[in-house]
Amino acid sequence: MKKIRVSLRVNGRIFTLETDPNRRLIDVLREDLNFTGVKEGCGIGECGACTVLMNGKPVNSCLVLIGQAEGSEVVTIEGLKGKNGELHPLQEAFIEAGAVQCGYCIPGMILSAEALLQNNPHPTEDLIKEAISGNLCRCTGYRQIIDAVKIASKKIARKE
């Protein structure tokens, strides 16, 4: 198979690589660039564990062929930080609310929530539920996760 050349920015850094065109963004992120915070739970767009931000929007990185990521700006959980490099308010809030159990859904969950808060810093409970509805969690029952997003929203408001 003829390789293609792809260049993308991940967590602020530019990466250029030659790779098979049938590889998915998740494969490149996990295997080549070692961003293993991107999780694979199904590989077919059903669980949201592989969620990353691509040009600010949450996408299932298992559904993106690497060629489609050319020139894009990708943020994985490893790239999420607070303004001065400390924990991001969402991360702090997830700890505070006890919203983390096995953790497998959490990177994707936090990134979906981040995309929501970027657009709407004060979402209603329904909007929160909507925003994370593509991110399955089998452990928490979602209640503490929803609480965490609310706490984060308040934290962000306080910091602004």
Binding site: F35, T36, G37, V38, T76, I77, E78, L87, Q91, F94, I95, V100, C102, G103, I106, P107, I110
Partner: peptide, 9 residues
């Protein structure tokens, strides 16, 4: 175990 899980580590 929360911190390593929310950071992807």
């Amino acid at each position: 175990d929360a911190e390593e899980k929310i950071s992807g580590k």
